[in-house]
Design a protein around this nucleic acid. Sequence first.
DNA 1: TAGTGGTCTAGACCACTCA
DNA 2: GAGTGGTCTAGACCACTAT
Lengths: 230, 230
Amino acid sequence: MSSHSHHTIRQAILDRIQTGEWALGELIPGEAMLADEYGCARTTINRALQGLANDGVVIRKRKGGTRVCDMPVRQAKFNIPVVREQVEALGSVYRHQVTRRVEKAPPTAVQKRLGLAPGTKSLQLDTVHLADDRPFAFETRWVNTRAVPAILDAPLDEISANEWLVQTVPFSSGDVVFCAVNAGKDVAEALGAREGAAVFVIDRTTSLAGEFITTMQLYYREGYQLHSQL
Amino acid sequence: MSSHSHHTIRQAILDRIQTGEWALGELIPGEAMLADEYGCARTTINRALQGLANDGVVIRKRKGGTRVCDMPVRQAKFNIPVVREQVEALGSVYRHQVTRRVEKAPPTAVQKRLGLAPGTKSLQLDTVHLADDRPFAFETRWVNTRAVPAILDAPLDEISANEWLVQTVPFSSGDVVFCAVNAGKDVAEALGAREGAAVFVIDRTTSLAGEFITTMQLYYREGYQLHSQL
DNA sequence: TAGTGGTCTAGACCACTCA
DNA sequence: GAGTGGTCTAGACCACTAT
């Protein structure tokens, strides 16, 4: 009876795919048939298959049936934690320093990203994140003060802009880009690295309800790695 | 009362969180209560909330209720496609070249990763992936021939090892690491880049049913970016 | 121990899409 | 037009855990 849980059935079906019972791209039996085979309700099969579809293992189409994904695209889910938590997870003491704070009209690239009218002022913030007083990451950020005016009064020496935003504007959406760059003079200096060092970068722009909030680049110190399961 | 779809309700609840109706870390009403409020079955509320929990927006505990996640960890889901598809998605012609193919005992680091007994031979493969005959990525790989003996007879000049493995051993699990490194002499040469260039690396080890299949590092050409939504 | 989420069921209807 | 997945419901029981 416990073999009727959608988890169990999902794993059972995955096994049958992995053992090659159904080849890549092949149609697998319909929900009704599987429900009959496993002796459970169709709803349960549905959940199991939706889970597999969500993981990219199968593709489902109404009337088209369910088939094994013929070009399995590996999906990896990453957690992008607040820097302070990363540092503390390493057992180090976190501290941050705001190295620049100005209000001015951003360069056009940033202006476009934030969807601002030309000449609109924004808040530019550079922050160095420290682990045990050694540089851990360097952050350059522009904040759309029109969307989040309250940030001008935030105590950014006590709480990093990132955390302040997370607490104030939670669950905004946006996009992320990962890449590698050679450290320029400014980044190298902030991180205490040599110029030209390979640095891992997270570039992120977030918005809420269609309004852009902030855009930032986070340069991690050398050797940083981002882990995930797949 | 209006729309009873779990998508709609999920969005409605998310809105109520984003507008601050429920603060970070705060308990939100139980399923039964929400079901009553929205005039739908508890099952429907359950689906909506499970979705939000899956996205890290809320945390749910039996008896503890559902509360807004107080330290929102941004989650990003990435697709890691087969290199050929990446190249073709750019509108370029894909080709690959196997630059090294030897069977020998791997260094201890690789031996441990693949869970091999000391001295066990493995297949080492270096591959250059080309886009319009220009280097796109450089791959170094070790394959556990005990787990996948058939690869010794695979036509790896026609199909890349990656694709052959994907088709032969689909949906294996494993882990991924992203990082940035300065190109060494070999990588620089393979990619046609200068030594020391910042290179984006995907390091991946996959296994199936507890047996390690393969481990590889994929070095992308300069300027490569990995995109995602959050 | 009581309360909350987790899940299964049986039945129903709908929406999409392939032929 | 017909077949398949998508979803909602009402009810039931279970499993976990906070108090």
